[in-house]
Amino acid sequence: MKKFTVPKIFMAVLVVLAGLTLFSCLDNDSPEIPPVKLEDLKGNYKGRLITVQGNSRTEKIVDFKVKKDTISFAEFPIKEIVKSVVKDPAKAETALNAIGKVKYDLQYTATVNTANNVIELVFTPKVLEFKIPVDGVNKNTTVVLTAKQKGFFVGMDHSLRYALAAEKITVDGVILDPFETINYNFPLCIKN
């Protein structure tokens, strides 16, 4: 009967463990993430909107639709705009109720960034126009919206992230002054 010494048993165990370790490295258990395509962007979204104006910050959930080259809002958030124009809180609420829903379409161009598996969106916002009824008079209001950074559709989780800002408001041809910029941040939007 042969006697195995401790070093020979230790070497045998070490060789078996090394073999198993190398074998497990060959087995790729991570899921395959498909590359993002421009068609992935289209659909109905629900997302978190963080609105910041000066020291005021509000959050709510909004719905919008993404088409080939447009993000369409059936109800664009105008509360802060109206409250910037109408300083009396009671009159502002009355005006908001009278205005109802304001539609807005945000134009964009999209390109696929294959290295990061994202779709980059460059926005070309148009002016938002609507009327604010105050004391029996409709005030023609135009809002200059800007997008200073790209938006991103992330292929990993199919989420959309972007931001807008209302930088200037004109009421009946007069620029609203003083006015503090209203920032609309959409940090996480998911398809319905």
Rank of each mutant, 00 (worst) to 15 (best):
F4R: 07
T5N: 15
T5I: 12
K8L: 06
F10Y: 12
M11F: 11
A12W: 04
L14S: 13
V15N: 03
V15C: 06
L17A: 14
L22Y: 13
S24G: 10
C25M: 14
L26F: 15
L26A: 09
L38W: 09
D40V: 10
L49A: 02
I50V: 15
I50R: 03
T51M: 07
Q53T: 13
Q53I: 06
G54M: 06
N55M: 11
V66G: 00
D69L: 08
T70P: 01
I71H: 04
F73N: 01
F73T: 03
E75S: 15
F76K: 01
V82M: 01
A90W: 08
L96Q: 05
N97V: 15
A98V: 04
G100D: 03
L106Q: 00
T109Q: 13
T109A: 07
T111Q: 10
T114W: 05
A115T: 14
N117R: 04
V122C: 03
T124N: 12
K126D: 12
K126A: 12
K126V: 08
K131V: 05
P133L: 02
D135R: 03
T142A: 10
L145M: 11
L145Y: 06
T146E: 09
T146F: 05
G151D: 03
F153Y: 12
M156G: 11
D157S: 10
A163N: 07
A165E: 06
I169H: 04
G173A: 08
G173S: 06
L176N: 04
F179K: 03
Y184M: 06
F186Q: 03
F186G: 00
